[in-house]
Design a protein around this nucleic acid. Structure first.
Length: 197
DNA sequence: GGGAAGATGTTCT
DNA sequence: GAACATCTTCCCT
């Protein structure tokens, strides 16, 4: 289970945000936690552009919280909202502060451990990781992963090539924001049970 | 030091 | 569909 991850190269992330967001669908999000490895498949993402996107955190300017967005692509941007964490991947070339929000994943391996992390176990299996806050809880992702390089298997969090690409991508407006509501920047795998909402 | 807002989740109606 | 729980970050004083 440890052997054959094919990591996405840095160049994958150094492209326009909507492209990367769409291309991340189906890829494997891998969390190394102690001696175990949790493997999930990305099924839903949202694109947050740089300074021209009023809904993006980066549009408010560079702060301590958002500084990683202005740095190198291929790193994790983790922030808190209410009692939850959200995971983003920094994209676009340096100084262009785009990022991709990972909204939902499908558990492939280590499901028992993810269930232990969730404080409110539900009857439906799909509620484990079907939302940005939920998947962070299930994978044990918190602010300590801020700035993690996801292009190397040495990290405790990294992204690997997809195992299957035979799916249909749907596009809708983003969820849970108050500005730029109409932009079609949310992408998800059609028919997947773990997609939020 | 204080106050307001927030890329959410859960629960209730 | 709406309310609320409850905490960090940022900006102002």
């Amino acid at each position: 289970m440890n052997s054959s991850f094919v990591l996405l190269q840095r160049g994958f992330y150094e492209r326009p945000t909507p492209e990367v967001a769409q291309d991340l669908l189906g890829k494997l999000l891998v969390r190394r936690l102690g001696g175990t490895i949790l493997v999930t498949r990305i099924v839903e993402t949202e694109a947050y552009l740089g300074s021209n996107d009023p809904a993006a955190h980066a549009a408010a300017g560079k702060t301590k919280r958002t500084e990683v967005l202005f740095g190198h692509p291929g790193h994790a941007y983790v922030y808190r909202i209410h009692q939850h964490h959200c995971l983003n991947i920094v994209v676009e070339p340096e100084h262009s502060p785009g990022c991709v929000l990972i909204r939902a994943v499908e558990p492939l391996s280590g499901i028992e451990i993810m269930l232990q992390h969730r404080t409110v176990p539900k009857s439906k299996i799909t509620s484990i990781t079907s939302g940005p806050g939920k998947l962070c809880q299930a994978l044990g992702i918190d602010i300590s992963l801020y700035g993690t390089d996801v292009t190397t298997a040495d990290s405790s969090l990294f992204i690997s090539e997809a195992v299957a690409t035979d799916f249909l991508v749907k596009t809708t407006p983003r969820v849970g924001i108050s500005k730029a509501k109409d932009a079609l920047l949310r992408f998800y795998i059609d028919g997947n049970e773990f997609v939020s909402r």
